[in-house]
């Protein structure tokens, strides 16, 4: 395995975890009730831990003297490779739940594959993360059901969240050259497999929640080349503020 390929692979995955962790951390003190406030930020903490582990490994693979913090705080938005889905804002509780639910499905499959690779660092990260993500899947899946089946308002809100976030799904099974290389090395499943897994899981969850599969008119593409929605710039501006304002300081 080419080190620079593995670096990019870890960076992509690490970036998605990082940006989701940030979005989840924004929910702190804003939960619908205290128990769920704790649960939602806990999802964020798990993702932050996964991001940290992946980015520490990425920095090591790159071997150019950058640390994980350098990767987080000193890259401009065009050099971030997280999926666009992960940067979508917490428009309401339903949007956050749907975003995280879809990503939990995705990560579960990704970590399952990585837990078997011949790379001790990555398989170790994946094994630990799998336990966390399996809880995310179950917790968020239950919320999709509750909201879909709950009241007329919650049904409408969660259906709207699925409809509006649907166009970001395509990136999760889209393939580029690096993905193909990673598949050949056994580090990833094919785009087709991922697509059919995601559609099957989501369909059965939506049916249970009395929701409909959204119509697919357009799927975004570009995050693997550092193209994002307009939300990412604001998120990074906030996240990187101290490091950018005081570049000589250690915290």
């Amino acid at each position: 395995m080419d080190k620079s390929d593995l670096f990019k692979f870890c960076l992509r995955l690490g970036d998605s975890c990082l940006i989701m962790a940030h979005r989840q951390s924004e929910m702190c003190s804003k939960g619908p009730f205290l128990e769920e406030d704790i649960a939602q930020t806990n999802l964020g903490l798990d993702l932050l831990g996964q991001a940290e582990a992946l980015l520490i490994y990425a920095a090591k693979l790159e071997d150019k003297g950058r640390t994980a913090d350098d990767l987080v705080y000193k890259r401009p938005e065009r050099d971030f490779y997280n999926f666009m889905l992960t940067e979508q804002p917490n428009t309401d509780f339903a949007f956050a739940v749907v975003r995280q639910y879809i990503m939990a499905l995705y990560l579960d499959k990704v970590y399952e594959t990585l837990s078997n690779v011949d790379d001790e660092t990555l398989s170790g990260i994946a094994l630990k993360a799998l336990k966390e993500i399996s809880y995310h899947k179950s917790h968020l899946g239950m919320w999709v059901t509750r909201l879909g089946d709950g009241t007329h308002e919650s049904h409408e809100r969660v259906q709207t969240a699925f409809n509006e976030l649907w166009m970001f799904l395509g990136e999760l099974y889209e393939e580029d050259e690096l993905d193909i290389k990673m598949q050949h090395a056994g580090f990833a499943i094919s785009g087709d497999e991922m697509k059919s897994y995601l559609f099957s899981e989501i369909s059965s969850c939506l049916t249970k929640a009395t929701l409909s599969i959204p119509e697919s008119i357009y799927m975004t593409t570009g995050s693997k080349k550092g193209i994002h929605t307009e939300y990412l710039g604001y998120l990074l501006t906030e996240m990187q503020y101290l490091q950018r304002a005081y570049p000589d300081a250690n915290w």
């Binding site: 940030h22 205290l34 406030d37 704790i38 831990g49 913090d69």
Partner: peptide
Amino acid sequence: ITRAPSLRAKKILLAKVQDEAG
């Protein structure tokens, strides 16, 4: 939390605020 200056600081602060909720 969203402006914490390092991954470590962010993790600790988030965990701490969660403790307060607990």
